[in-house]
Nucleic acid binder design. Structure first.
Length: 568
RNA sequence: CGGGGUGUAGCGCAGACUGGUAGCGCGUUUGGUUCGGGACCAAAAGGUCGGGGGUUCAAAUCCCCCCGCCCCGACCA
């Protein structure tokens, strides 16, 4: 492909709204163009790279035994009512009406559609197991789109769904997808970290996320320094530190803390360490008020709390509820004397002397011993894990990192198959519910994650497997007819060998071409110039390496082929 | 949705406080000189100053309303 024929619009400076390296580079290299918030056009180069990722995904899905389908992006509201998710995802979905005033949604995901498919098409255990997949555009009304393709309103996703006769069989389907994901990301040149994850609004019982470690990642995770444990912060557990129990003869006493509401304010005012304060949070669990206690230096993990209480829906109590339940304005809640259920972080189970709110305006209590002075319904691990917490498996300290979620595998169970009656007849003629799994890869996000993980100050460094072109053929001076001619015939030869060539035939100065070459990040650069031709050679340079080598014109194509083959 | 910011040529920005001919760099076009790491000279094109309303002799500039975009937060598979 000639540069002059396609459209490659490189930018010397990044648009001001690009924040992270990968987004800036995608804009600068002319891969994508913004239409509006969270909406991007793929330009020719970006599309080529995207297709490469899709190809890898398809090959590995097929290899794992999954079969491709294509479901509508436009979906009737009814199926979302049927699964019960219409109310859950309502605000996240784009909703439209047809001329008959029927409400439709633009699919944010496809569990409902695929389960409907399975319910209609699968009747017998002989048809199972089945794993379906598609690569489809998803639509989500993101509250805040950002970082280019990382969080967009419209994006490409590979989603797969498995149907099995039993939980045991479903485990095998799950493992097959898990293994395929490992291969996919490896082939994309990505280093990923697999973490245990929360299932969130997806439902289901168990899941793993594939994370690309990056400081710009939107997800937090912890990983054990010693064993293989790693988990999303939404999920991560921690072992409790060994702390000596302490107690006091003194009874709780009120102290005036005028206008001191936050942990920091109270800590400074009472001259008590944050960790010796107990934070009391009031929530509505399925509408009923509860209190939650966590150490003052910790943050409550709402996901853990919801799970501990059996999957209730949680929301922070409003000020009126807090006043009604605690008898005091917000900022002075404490466990002593509360009549609503009180749940506490497990770390508070070891008796200790602490300070809490007094359920009275401008007052806190000191010398509180929870086990003695408060009525705790239950202790659970409830706080967000962080750097230095102990691994729940081996008690070694954990590290905290950030990552980009590129893939997610779920064991779904029967949530959707029950709702849609996706069942089959077993060998004994009994009707059984299928057991499902679902498996997503953010394709467009993966593309950007590759750049986030593989670039330098000069530009993108594409892995050969996903590069828009394998070779950038540069003629530094197109006015020099012999160079141009030699390059043209080299392009023809390379392309006849199946090599993907971008031929920079622009009448630009060499410096511009070399800078653009680095920016685009095409893995192999071949330069045909008056200078190289004097030795009967083509200069070859890899984007990943500083050195160049001179290859005789006659052997260039075989050399490049072996480089390309060697990378596979 | 709350808080903050921002909107001026394709991109990056100045001009606004203190109202009076709309500017700079890069890019683009033409001509010339150059030609291995984002050249130089000369000429040129390109703007409803986000939109609407108001104040004023006069508004990019001051006031009001609306919209887009960005950041932080809440929220979210």
């Amino acid at each position: 492909m000639r540069w002059s024929q396609t459209l490659v619009t490189t930018l010397r400076e990044a648009p001001q709204d690009a924040e992270i390296a990968s987004h800036k580079l995608m804009m600068r290299a002319g891969l994508i163009m913004k239409l509006g918030g969270g909406l991007y056009t793929f330009l020719p180069l970006g599309l080529r790279a995207l297709r490469k990722v899709e190809k890898i995904v398809r090959e590995e899905m097929d290899h794992a035994g999954a079969v491709e389908v294509l479901m509508p992006a436009l979906q009737p509201r009814e199926i979302w009512e049927q699964s019960g998710r219409y109310s859950v995802l309502r605000d996240a979905m784009f909703k439209i009406r047809d001329r008959q005033d029927r409400e439709m949604v633009l699919g944010p995901t496809h569990e409902e559609v695929i389960t409907d498919l399975a319910a209609r098409q699968i009747n017998s255990y002989r048809q199972l197991p089945k794993t379906f997949y598609q690569i489809q555009t998803k639509f989500r009304d993101e509250i805040r789109p950002r970082f280019g393709l990382m969080r967009a309103k419209e994006f490409s996703m590979k989603d797969a769904y498995s149907f099995d006769v039993s939980w045991e069989a479903a485990d095998q389907s799950y493992q097959a997808m898990y293994d395929a994901y490992v291969r996919i990301f490896k082939r994309c040149g990505l280093k990923t970290k697999v973490v245990e994850a929360d299932t969130g609004a997806m439902g289901g019982n168990f899941s793993h996320e594939f994370m690309v470690l990056a400081d710009s990642g939107e997800d937090g995770l912890v990983e054990c320094q010693s064993c293989t444990y790693a988990a999303n912060l939404e999920r991560a557990e921690r072992a409790l530190p060994q702390t000596a129990p302490e107690t006091t003869e003194r009874l709780p006493r009120s102290v005036a803390t005028p206008d001191k509401r936050t942990i920091e304010e109270v800590s400074a005012f009472l001259k008590v360490e944050c960790s010796d304060l107990v934070k009391t949070l009031v929530y509505l669990a399925n509408g009923e008020p509860i209190a939650v206690l966590v150490p003052g230096n910790r943050e409550l993990n709402e996901h853990k709390l919801a799970r501990a209480l059996g999957g209730v829906s949680l929301q922070m109590a409003d000020d009126d509820t807090i006043r009604r339940v605690t008898g005091s304005p917000v900022g002075f809640a404490g466990p002593v004397g509360l009549t609503i259920p009180v749940y506490a972080d497990a770390e508070l189970k070891t008796s200790r002397v602490c300070a809490t709110g007094a359920n009275a305006p401008d007052t806190h209590l000191m010398d509180v011993v929870l086990q003695r002075d408060a009525c705790i319904s239950e202790y659970y691990d409830l706080v967000i894990a962080h750097e230095g917490d102990l691994c729940p498996r081996c008690r070694a300290p954990m590290r905290e990192k950030r990552g980009i979620e590129v893939g997610h595998v779920f064991k779904l169970g029967t949530k959707y198959s029950k709702a849609f009656n996706a069942s089959y007849l077993d060998a004994d003629g009994n009707r059984q519910i299928s057991v499902m799994g679902c498996y997503g890869i953010g394709v467009t996000r993966t593309l950007q994650a590759i750049i986030e993980q593989s670039h330098d100050e000069n530009g993108i460094i594409w892995p050969l497997s996903v590069a828009p072109f394998q070779v950038n053929l540069v003629v530094p001076n197109v006015q020099h007819a012999p160079s141009l001619q030699a390059a043209e015939s080299l392009q023809t030869e390379l392309e006849s060998q199946g090599i993907e060539v971008l031929f920079d035939d622009r009448d630009e100065r060499p410096g511009v071409k070399f800078k653009d070459s680095d920016l685009l990040g095409i893995p192999i650069r071949a330069v045909v110039s008056e200078r190289s031709l004097a030795d009967g050679c083509v200069e070859v340079k890899l984007r990943t390496e500083a050195g160049k080598s001179m290859i005789p014109v006659a052997s260039v194509s075989s050399r490049l082929l072996s480089i390309i083959e060697g990378a596979k």
